[in-house]
Design a protein around this nucleic acid. Structure first.
Lengths: 235, 235
DNA sequence: CCAAAAGTGTTAAACTTACACCCATGA
DNA sequence: TCATGGGTGTAAGTTTAACACTTTTGG
């Protein structure tokens, strides 16, 4: 048993404060290659510490809102989007992750659909970056993003989160593109399509996506369990 | 956008306080059937709210310790054991999980080896319970335990955490017993043994476990990646 | 008609699963 | 020597993975 306070200076420290941050992922085509890739919004810090550096969107927890609600609000404020998927990532709280007053951050990660062009919400202090090229960020935020990426890829391996990136209907090739963008490797179209169809999570519609350069692919609809639903993990 | 404060009473609330709690799992033989089952220690609350009810061990975060360290200390204090495995579980922070002042709890889960008989550390206010029969606990602690169990079983499916329950050497049948106790179903000994041997995580020793009633089984040693290592997930 | 993506078929290899069987020991 | 858990063998069923092949559209 250690004594209640190791020394006087500790006794006089304030209790650590709490903040909520969010890693928001969206897929958008790379302006150069045209292939889908992962992007996320960052905000520029306007005060010390780390003033002028980019950081994850975040803020304090309000008295009456749940952790999840705080994260969702966060996301709404910085992107204007509603999350299709929102889940707690991790609580970061090392005594040295922030200079001076200690901050414990509970971090959420979210997936949003980009097509709503709301990606356009950029200004001097909010911008989107490729997930694999964010530069040096404030605090331990690079580490946080790495972890979020790891978790995203993990979930992808055996999950239905892919649909959180897509609209109400989609082609099987689009689902494959999502997987390829997130996992960073190519997948066999033939086998992939069969694996998808083997899960009961999607259902074919009678529509086809017109306007492509070749044979129009059939559209499908997600019918599996509620994505993200709410508050709690058992995903 | 919601207004900054919904009403005056909210403005006057204190910021939520932070606590660390720990779900500590150990395997011990059931006093009746003799088969291994999951147990965890709980502490009796000595103050309101929920006075006299059993609850997860926990306490405040000290100024200079990391979240992980706080959880480890917690565990040391209540069981006298060091965790072989300790990982963050989830942060619980609904505005209504505790009457009156709001508390955000960052919960860890741990696996310990029971053989050190330190299970004996029981007194009026600390006792061990079967994980599937804890009764009604304080706060949302039943829910937390359910989630910890879910996560444990999940990790078990494709992981090497099983070894965290065992000593330096063990028989393959012991590993199987761990799996059976946690997953709650029987496994084919023949196939299970082969699957274990197929992973590179264990290595055979030249010793055999003597004293059984039948043919002495060979002892093995874990040689895979550090269990639990520290601070961070990428398990 | 041609290029290219959509979509189907086929087969070898890998991995599960179930269960028969032999082995070695304490009693 | 027998009962029992330790340990090996094996064959059917299922899943994965690679890739050839047919279909349908826009140009």
């Amino acid at each position: 048993m250690t004594p209640k306070y190791a020394n006087v200076s500790e006794r006089e420290q304030e209790p650590p404060s709490l903040a909520i941050s969010t890693v928001i992922f969206a897929l958008r085509p790379d302006p150069e290659t045209g292939r889908l890739s992962l992007w996320l919004p960052l905000v520029r810090r306007i005060r010390q510490p780390y003033r002028e550096l980019w950081a994850l969107p975040g803020g304090p927890l309000r008295p009456s809102e749940s952790l999840q609600d705080a994260a969702a609000r966060n996301l709404q404020d910085t992107t204007g989007l509603s999350p299709r998927y929102l889940e707690q990532l991790y609580a970061f709280g090392g005594p040295d992750r922030s200079p001076t007053p200690r901050v414990v951050s509970i971090v959420y990660w979210a997936l949003v659909q980009p097509d709503e062009a709301a990606l356009a919400r950029q200004d001097e202090n909010v911008d989107w970056f490729r997930a694999d090229a964010v530069g040096t960020l404030a605090f331990d935020h690079n580490r946080i993003i790495d972890y979020a990426l790891w978790r995203l890829r993990n979930k992808m391996e055996y999950g239905s989160i892919a649909y959180a990136f897509l609209g109400a209907t989609f082609t099987l090739a689009q689902v494959r593109e999502v997987y390829e963008a997130v996992l960073g490797r190519e997948l066999d179209p033939a086998n992939f399509r069969r694996q998808l169809q083997a899960t009961q999570d999607i259902e074919r519609t009678d529509s086809f996506l017109q306007g492509g350069r070749h044979r129009p692919p059939r559209l499908y609809r997600y019918t599996g369990p509620e994505l993200q639903s709410d508050a709690f993990p058992p995903a």
